[in-house]
């Protein structure tokens, strides 16, 4: 299988006043296409930093990170933005839906971010968004604003939003962190279904149960332990 994400000797160093803080210390990671990877680790271990790098929101201080074969540290902001729009689907712990937009509009929104040539016309975008809303089982709530939905439903909308551009992989940052156990089970099942369809999933989680049936990578003090 092809490497989708490959990090070699990744370092991330922040300066706090005159002190240097190393969030990542020569971390190596490889995620193959089609995998469901769970990144686990205690707070401050570097999980979020790693996730931000893989998501093209941050770049390493040292080392090389390849996403889909492209080295990201040399990419300009424009290219990273384009990559995030096309290749990555984000799922956040706090859902991060746009509150003024309906379920359908939230799901449709990322398709507006595609550049010319990839961008669909409005009716095709609506059709595709409706398909994704259907996949997550929220068609009856398609016109609702996020405020009218439960936590589990909001996260399902976020999953639909992440899927809508057919990304190379989905990045889920503690997607069940704000959900009850029933909703957690539903969301994890949904992510597995998405993974079964061929989409790579990289998930950060604290919960061993949610990481069941996934490839677990433990991170501690800025390096992968196992």
């Amino acid at each position: 299988m092809k490497d989708l994400v490959k990090g070699q000797e990744l370092w991330k160093t922040y300066k706090l006043d005159s002190t240097e803080v190393h969030a990542l210390r020569g971390l190596n990671i490889t995620v193959d296409e089609g995998e469901f990877v769970s990144i686990m680790g205690p707070s401050g271990s570097g999980k979020s930093t790693l996730l931000n790098m893989i998501g093209g929101l941050d770049t390493p201080t040292k080392g090389k990170l390849y996403i889909g074969g492209k080295e990201t540290s040399s990419m300009k902001d424009k290219e990273l933005t384009k990559m995030r729009a096309k290749d990555i689907g984000f799922i956040f712990q706090t859902f991060n839906l746009l509150p003024a937009l309906s379920v359908l509009d939230n799901v449709e929104f990322p398709m507006r971010n595609l550049t010319n040539g990839e961008k669909l016309d409005k009716s095709s975008r609506i059709q595709r968004a409706e398909e994704c809303v259907d996949i997550v089982g929220l068609t009856p709530r398609i016109k609702y604003l996020p405020a009218k939905l439960s936590g589990g439903e909001r996260q399902r909308v976020a999953i639909a939003r992440a899927l809508v551009n057919n990304p190379k992989f989905i990045l889920a940052d503690e997607p069940t962190g704000n959900l009850d156990s029933e909703a957690t089970a539903n969301i994890i099942n949904l992510l597995h279904e998405v993974n079964d369809q061929g989409t790579t999933v990289i998930m950060v989680t604290h919960d061993l149960d949610t990481a069941k049936d996934t490839k677990v990578m433990k991170i501690r003090d800025g390096v992968i332990e196992s």
């Binding site: 729009a85 507006r112 971010n113």
Partner: peptide, 16 residues
């Protein structure tokens, strides 16, 4: 701020 951050994260360009 958070909405704009979300938009930027999911690939919305600065000019948008």
């Amino acid at each position: 701020t958070k909405e704009i951050g979300t938009m930027r994260a999911i690939g919305t360009r600065k000019r948008s």
